[in-house]
Design a protein around this nucleic acid. Sequence first.
RNA 1: GCUCCCGUAGUCUAGUCCGGUCAAGGAUUCGGCGCCUUCGACGCCGUAACGCGGGUUCGAAUCCCGCCGGGAGCACCA
Length: 535
Amino acid sequence: MRPHAAEVRDLVSSAVAEVLSLPGPERVDRLAGLGGPEAVRAKAAPSTGGDFPDLVGAVPGEVVLRLAPFPSGALHIGHGRMLFINQHYREQYRGKILLVFDDTIGSEEKRVETEFFGLIENDLEAAGVRPDAVYYKSDRIPLFYPWARRVIEKDAAYVCRCPAELLRENRAHGVACAHRTQTREETFEEWEKMLANVYGPGEAVLRLRTDLADPDPAFRDRVLLRISDIDHPRVGTKYRVWPMLEFSWAVDDIELGITHVIRGKDLVIEDRMQRYIWDVLGIHGPPFLHWGILRVREAKVAKSKAYREVKSGLFDGWADPRTWSLRSLDRRGISMGALRAFTLSFGMSLSDIEVPAETLYAENRKRIDATTVRRAFVADPARVEVGGFPEGLATVTLSNHPDRPEMGTRTVSTGPGVFLARKDLEGRAGTEVRLKDLVNIELPGDAPVAGSSLSARFTSRENKRIPRLQWVGAEGATPVDILGIEGEHTSGLGESTLREAHPGEIFQFERVGFVRVERDWVPGESPLRVVYGHP
RNA sequence: GCUCCCGUAGUCUAGUCCGGUCAAGGAUUCGGCGCCUUCGACGCCGUAACGCGGGUUCGAAUCCCGCCGGGAGCACCA
């Protein structure tokens, strides 16, 4: 075989290319045609995740997709869907992804802000979605003007000078205004006046001429370009005539050579608009695919609210857990791989869905549980002195992972002084309990009083089947602060080994959940700061 | 109100295009048991669904009609 290596390699790569070019179902059929056990398995394999239809007319290696975020905040969990679906198709077809910032002028309420360009690029990087190129709509404004002329040339647009409210009302009732009957020449004249600063903001817009009797009121004579004086953070006041999203994409999906537009179904009317414009100009545009609306039950904070709270300082920046931004999830130790699997499990379904965060947690747990070491932590600790504590039991060696001995052990400090969670003490006065992995003790008859320590009595070391309590030895107990999902802080004490914990490490605090270390413990200054991930 | 989209178990999802192999598969959740020093993980078992009503057909989750329910759009935002 070796002498023919080059030949074999060519044969293999061409065969692989051929297979890759086939749509999934056809691959299975071909495989079945060849026989063999794999064929049966491939056919019978149950689908574990969402369904992704093949891209129509896609040529492997030549697919061009685009991501078009509006730079007004960090990417949140919902954007994750946009990212990973496009990434999925890019991988499937060995295509390209263009990052196109949709930074047209926006509105008073929706402003472009410079800081978000870099922020979003970092989020993409962290999510493992590297764009093949980056574009800014704001750099491309002059490009849209000739396209506007082309549309006017086809008698498919007119300059409307109605106030916005009247325009809206007419649209609702399917009424044409006086401007609609403009001749092409008049429109060109008016259009030039728009460009020549003759009109102020709100005084003139270029509208598409569709059909005022269109059954869908949303589709009647939509606005293509309008005038704005807002100072754009990248290009200032260089341009006054700005395209609306739909028009800008009718142009850019062609100009940038986008082969497939994959976007949320909230943008379906834009499809129709783009197609209408392409039809007018006799252009064949790319096909559209949509996904439905995804909500994570716990992530109820709207982007605009997150924005306000980050600005006001109530939230601790864009990585605050309450924002449910991608970076906040990363901060919590939830991997982008888990997020991707979670997101892709919904496929391209057009249903509007609401999913509990638990589903995401389960995905993450699946990935980290086997490789995450266990540590003891006690919230709201009460100090207990154990009378008769065995001499010479100053330390105890525990497994880092109860099911995986290969993950090693750690040695924690013990002694007669231990901390127990107040909650664990409730209703157990006078009973015998076992300090997990250590000894049995009899709790005192009195309830714990804040500020003072309780006295308990050592009973035995026998591994009894009695309630087992989480404990932390007073010797070496490490102050810990947990930042929770609601932005709340829980302080408590962790076992002695936590003194050596460092940022980025992920632990499972037994009976509490997975946490990610954010800041070292600094004696006398700061507790070990961790961020709660999930149970 | 008008337009579009969606409707399979608690929550997601496969199956719907090309009706039978679906007495409906998978994931997650929940309950039980096991493993016996986590309320975690793992293993086993279990509960649980084709929105409703007609029709076509030997046969419908799949096709047709009507209804009901949910979401989005009707911005000179994206």
